[in-house]
Design a protein around this nucleic acid. Structure first.
Length: 611
DNA sequence: CTAGGGTTAG
């Protein structure tokens, strides 16, 4: 740590280091080592633009400049400072306490910030609008809007007038909880009816809320309203909408807004480019992604760790892990250190290819690279082992993560449940499902579907139906994946009639069948020899607006083979090839099987030759 | 003190 401190100071030009210290009234660098007693570790930054000044085992005896803020690398250091401040009499001014609370909030320790806030209150350290706003924000982040609004009441009782930040924070809280309608209502109440002046922060919060619930069109309308009201949108306003348009697959519109902002003199930044590059990479438009990358460099927007991580992730998802490795090396050459997200993407890339030993190598090297595996890292590698049917290693890592102080989440549990379901260890899968509650977690739709899948796949259809009803009683709305699993499970145990009934009831339930639903139903019908009905459904699905994919064709062709309708199989095979799809492994296996059989092989060959 | 971008499960 000592070395690190020296490096930090040494990395500053000496004149600016001394200047910095003088502004902090801490004397010259040497005096740091002779400070009275080890106390706390903290970074003390003058402001965003200033270099960080690392200060270990020291404390500040004087009040630093107004713009300064605390940056801690450990929560304990923040607590040590707090305790120190409580022991100092008379107390530090509330502004200093506010800065400390704000540093804790930046570390996302909302509960701790609330607890310190309460301690201050008990010690009759008077809060101001700043510390009250921080408290509001903490409750908002913890999804406790009820308490957030109580703080508003408290402010009024204390005679402290809530300001635009108080309301913007509350509006943001409502948006975070998906309660955008209420957020808009609060906005109208405060800023329209009461005639308060919203800031761009307030508008951007609403724009973001609308985008996050998929109301991008409304967000664009709000962008126009903001302009009409004489408030100039900024880069962030545009970035929020550009990102949302990209995620909705409206990349053309996103690009339109992108050029619009430049035209208005609102400069795109690294975030704007990252959103667009992300969209291009994910849709395999590599040429466009490269153009944007070069453009951003030319526009003096330096690609950052997120830019490179986006590219690494997209390459990995395409199975191009070696190219991803190249990018990773290039980013290091450019002086940008990969972070845990970059390594997680790379690791997942190997997992997706089933190359678990390579994935493990990445996992094991994370610590050496100066990063710490997080819950994502463990979830990714656990999933990799589950998919590779190496369940023991998955379980071992689950225990390892808890030993390392990481708290498994719903994804961890769902992954393990699915892994156990896949290999038929249903009792264990059910145990893990129950274990979730012990961790204070609430299973979501995916957690339910993981176990539902196991029950169905292994023929426990009645248990599955009961479990499905339990999910509904818990207030979760079933989606198409649940129905796909149930329909498949019903077909598997020969309950075709029930499966069919469920299939035709989907639209009434307001759930749209997916390509997979059709394939499942077609497979089920073929299994019971109802080839004509299956074929009718195969034709009808596109009429109903569900485009056939490779899986649909393969399922239908296998169904034909299964029912010995070779000529129909060939007809559909022909159509499939014309559409640019190809036979999958099990279809090819069936074709090979038929070709090698004496009875049908001959006629099959004859028919194939006619194609 | 309030607003934006990248990673995981069915």
């Amino acid at each position: 740590m000592m070395m690190m401190r020296c490096w930090k100071i040494a990395s500053l030009p000496s004149s600016s280091a001394i200047d910095l210290l003088q502004r902090l009234e801490l004397g010259n660098p040497k005096s740091l080592n002779s400070l009275p007693f080890p106390f706390f570790n903290c970074f003390y930054a003058l402001n965003k633009e200033s270099p960080l000044f690392y200060c270990q085992n020291s404390y500040f005896s004087t009040t630093p400049s107004k713009k300064s803020k605390y940056v801690f690398d450990k929560i304990d250091d923040a607590l040590a400072l707090f305790n120190h401040m409580l022991r100092t009499h008379p107390y530090h001014c509330i502004v200093e306490f506010g800065k400390l609370l704000s540093a804790i909030v930046r570390m996302r320790h909302y509960e701790i910030a609330i607890s310190l806030w309460r301690q201050m209150e008990l010690l009759e350290i008077h809060h101001n609008v700043y510390t009250l706003n921080i408290l509001v924000n903490c409750f908002c982040r913890l999804h406790r809007m009820d308490f957030g609004f109580s703080v508003l009441g408290k402010m009024l009782k204390l005679g402290i007038e809530p300001d635009v930040i108080t309301f913007s924070t509350l509006i943001n809280g409502l948006c975070i909880g998906g309660n955008v309608a209420q957020a808009v209502r609060l906005f109208d109440d405060v800023f329209v009816r009461e005639g308060c002046q919203p800031t761009l922060f307030t508008y951007n919060t609403i724009v973001n809320g609308l985008c996050k619930i998929g109301e991008t069109t409304r967000a664009v309308r709000l962008l126009r309203t903001i302009e009409e009201r004489g408030c100039a949108p900024n880069t962030i306003t545009y970035n929020i909408i550009i990102d949302s348009l990209c995620k909705d697959n409206h990349v053309t519109e996103a690009l339109k807004l992108f050029s619009e902002m430049s035209g208005k003199g609102i400069p795109p930044d690294v975030v704007s480019y990252n959103c667009l590059i992300h969209a291009m990479c994910n849709s395999c438009q590599w040429k466009e992604a490269t153009t944007l990358f070069n453009e951003m460099v030319a526009a003096n927007c330096k690609p950052d760790v997120i830019t490179y991580s986006v590219v690494v992730d997209a390459l990995c998802k395409e199975g191009r892990v070696l190219e991803a490795q190249d990018i990773l090396e290039r980013m290091i050459q450019q002086g940008i250190e990969p972070n845990i997200v970059t390594y997680n993407s790379l690791m997942d890339g190997y997992c997706l290819r089933g190359e678990m030993d390579e994935a493990r190598k990445v996992f094991n090297s994370i610590t050496n690279k100066g990063c710490t595996p997080d819950v994502f890292s463990y979830n990714i590698i656990i999933n990799g082992y589950c998919k590779a049917k190496r369940i023991d290693e998955a379980v071992k890592l689950f225990h390892e993560m808890t030993q390392n102080g990481l708290i498994p989440n719903v994804v961890t549990f769902s992954t393990l449940i699915n892994g156990m379901s896949q290999i038929g260890r249903l009792a264990v899968a059910q145990e893990i499902f129950k274990e979730m509650y012990a961790y204070g977690l609430v299973p979501n739709t995916i957690a339910y579907s993981s176990l539902l899948y196991g029950l169905c796949r292994h023929g426990h259809i009645n248990e599955a139906l009961g479990f499905f009803r339990a999910m509904q009683s818990s207030g979760l709305e079933p989606n198409i994946v649940h129905y796909n699993i149930l329909i498949d499970g019903l077909c598997l145990v020969g309950q075709l009639k029930v499966a069919r009934k469920l299939f035709y009831a989907l639209t009434v339930k307001g759930v749209h069948p997916s390509v997979y639903t059709y394939s499942t139903m077609i497979k089920g019908l073929c299994k019971e020899g109802l080839l004509n009905e299956a074929y009718e459904l195969f034709r009808k699905m596109e009429v109903d607006g569900c485009m056939r994919n490779s899986c649909s064709y393969n399922t239908m062709i296998r169904g034909c083979f299964h029912n010995n309708d070779i000529s129909r199989a060939i007809q559909i095979l022909h159509e499939m090839v014309q559409k640019g799809f190809s036979a999958d492994v099990s279809t090819v296996a069936m074709v090979v099987d038929i070709l090698s059989s004496d009875s049908t092989g001959e006629s099959f060959r004859a028919l194939v030759q006619k194609l």
